[in-house]
Structure formats: structure tokens, C-alpha cells
Amino acid sequence: MIPMAAYDDQAADRPSTPERRSQFADLIRRRRAELNVGLDAFAKRAIDPVSGKKVTRGWIYRLETGEPVTPPELPELMALAAACDLPLEALQDAAGQQFHGVDPLVSGSTEAKAYVHKLDRLPADQRERLLRLIDTLVPPDEG
């Protein structure tokens, strides 16, 4: 027989259930409420202006009610950004949090966040030169 104390110690070593994230679903639900738009009307607005990709009412319903959904890809994010009348980056941040566990960049200024989003479009050599320039203006933290 295993002593109860030993059993309790083993329970503490087991991984806990992963945190259920709902940032993207919360954003869509909240924005739909702010716009005072029903699910059908919202789904009709959820069309990517570039590709014409549509997000279905059923997918939005499952997302909002916490049912399993396939994570949205860029065309779906663009469609939902159009329906929400929000910048694409806001939806990308929330989707990254909910579906991939990636927390968005938090900064004291909106400019810093915009710079980081643009940074990924630069070639590696230009990013390195930019970092060296920034280091001459603001020396890196010692640590």
C-alpha cells in the first residue's frame, strides 16, 4: 500500500491541464457586441478583400462558444479584420495567443510595436545594421 503522503507528492509532479486560452474568441465576441452586429450579418462581412475568402457563420459560432475550431490562416484573419473593422495585427496577436501560446509584444508606445512588425520585412543584414545603429544610440543592457 502506498502511503497517502507519497501519493500526494506524485500528484504534484503530474503536469497540470494546459491553460485554456480564449483571447481570439473573446476579441471576436467583444467586437461583434461593440458593433451591435448579429452573427449572420457579421459572417456576411467576414470576407477577405484580397482573396475573397469567407469565414462561415458556423466557424464563428463554434469559436465564440468555445467549441474546437481550426486556427484561422491569413485570409481568414483578413476577413475577420474586415468584419471587426480592426487592424489585422490586433487579430494576429489574439490568434497567436489563443492558438499558439504566443504572447504579443507589449510596449510603452504604439510606435515600438509598429517598428517590430515592420522589422520582419527587412533582410537579415539590414536588421543587423539597424540593431548596431540602435546600440550606438541606446547601449544594450549589461547583464
Rank of each mutant, 00 (worst) to 15 (best):
T65P: 05
G52M: 06
A95P: 12
D48M: 02
R62G: 07
L105S: 04
A94Q: 09
D13C: 12
Y61L: 02
R30I: 14
R29E: 03
L137T: 06
R132T: 02
T136P: 01
R29F: 07
A81E: 06
L74Q: 09
D125T: 10
L86P: 12
Q92W: 03
K44Q: 07
R129D: 04
R121C: 11
D93P: 06
E67A: 13
K53H: 05
L27P: 00
Q92I: 08
E73L: 08
L35A: 01
D120T: 05
L91F: 05
P75N: 14
L77G: 04
T110G: 09
G66T: 10
R62P: 14
L35S: 09
L131C: 10
D85S: 14
K118G: 07
A5Q: 09
Q126E: 00
G58R: 05
R57W: 06
S16G: 15
A90Q: 11
R20S: 15
H117F: 09
P49C: 06
A112G: 12
A46I: 10
P15F: 02
Q98E: 12
N36H: 08
L131F: 11
L122R: 03
S51M: 12
A5K: 11
A12V: 04
S107Y: 11
R45H: 03
G66K: 10
K113T: 02
L80V: 07
L122H: 01
T65I: 05
S107E: 07
L27D: 01
A90G: 08
I28S: 01
